[in-house]
């Protein structure tokens, strides 16, 4: 039954679907980004006016830089926390490994708005942390209310679960007998970790990093509800072009910038590491 029909059905339908509803919209965003919006009307003249605005108006550059710094810091923190957590679960989880990983999925699947509400319950002016401080007779902590620190805590909270899950899956597929082999040949646990475990799970770690970095770069909700007046990030500014200001074309250009930065990151990461040496086995069965 290896006819011509089966591949067309099995691969063709999903490919067509993605082409129509994923690739075409992204292309239309690209097209809109070289048009103009005036008084809520779209003017279909090709020009790079929007990109010129983004490059010359200082505020947009500040937002982009702030977003890049924020996304890098949050992804680094998430990776740093996620590694010991995922490694701890694989080593000591025993038969409860599954429970531990699913427990990470519960907050992840609850949706961004509801998790931001939960975070407000933790960090907000009337939240748990300040409530405890007030109950103890101390002054409320100002650093965590409507600041960039609060945004960063919020983003770590939002994306830690996905990083843990990705690194955990990488460790699960990693052949742990290799560590035994290394220790038998006299490597210390630290050496076995840095020369076997870390390099062979680098690919999974990079995917986890990217899956945290990309949504953080385009974050719209966390900076809006947790960040302060100096907390505007690029994604939040982009969302405003489609809401309050109605300047869709400029927003589309910002979308293209965000997309380009994300793609650039993935390409650079793929170039930097030699895939075959990082535990990437492709999609073959092995």
């Amino acid at each position: 039954m290896k006819g011509r029909v089966a591949p067309a059905v099995f691969l063709g339908i999903p490919t067509l679907f993605l082409a129509a509803l994923f690739v075409l919209p992204l292309l239309s965003m690209l097209v809109l980004s070289v048009w103009r919006t005036e008084n809520y009307h779209i003017i279909r003249d090709v020009s790079f006016h929007n990109y010129a605005v983004l490059a010359t108006e200082g505020a947009y550059m500040t937002f982009l830089m702030r977003s890049l710094v924020m996304a890098t810091a949050v992804s680094a923190i998430c990776t740093l926390i996620a590694w010991p957590v995922a490694y701890g679960i694989t080593l000591y989880g025993g038969r409860y490994k599954l429970l531990f990983t699913l427990a990470f999925a519960v907050p992840f699947l609850t949706g961004e708005v509801l998790r931001i509400i939960a975070l407000q319950g933790l960090l907000g002016p009337l939240g748990l942390l300040n409530g405890v401080l007030l109950a103890l007779g101390a002054a409320p902590l100002r650093v965590i209310m409507y600041t960039n620190v609060a945004s960063a805590i919020g983003l770590v909270y939002l994306y830690l679960p996905i990083v843990v899950t990705v690194i955990y899956l990488s460790l699960l597929n990693f052949d742990q007998r290799l560590i035994d082999a290394a220790t038998i040949f006299g490597a210390s646990p630290a050496r076995a970790f840095f020369e076997i475990t870390w390099p062979l799970n680098l690919f999974g770690t990079l995917i986890g990093f990217a899956l945290c970095f990309i949504p953080c770069l385009s974050a719209t909700l966390a900076p809006r509800f947790l960040g302060g007046p100096n907390g505007t990030l690029y994604g939040m500014a982009m969302a405003q072009q489609f809401g309050e200001s109605g300047t869709w074309a400029l927003g589309a250009a910002m979308g293209v910038v965000l997309f380009a930065v994300s793609v650039l990151l993935v390409v650079v990461a793929a170039r930097l590491v030699d895939l075959r040496r990082t535990g990437f086995t492709g999609f073959g069965r092995g």
């Binding site: 239309s28 965003m29 489609f242 869709w248």
Partner: peptide
Amino acid sequence: FVAEVLLGISSLI
């Protein structure tokens, strides 16, 4: 590898 907000906005456009 494409942020949700970009999917939303590009589909809207």
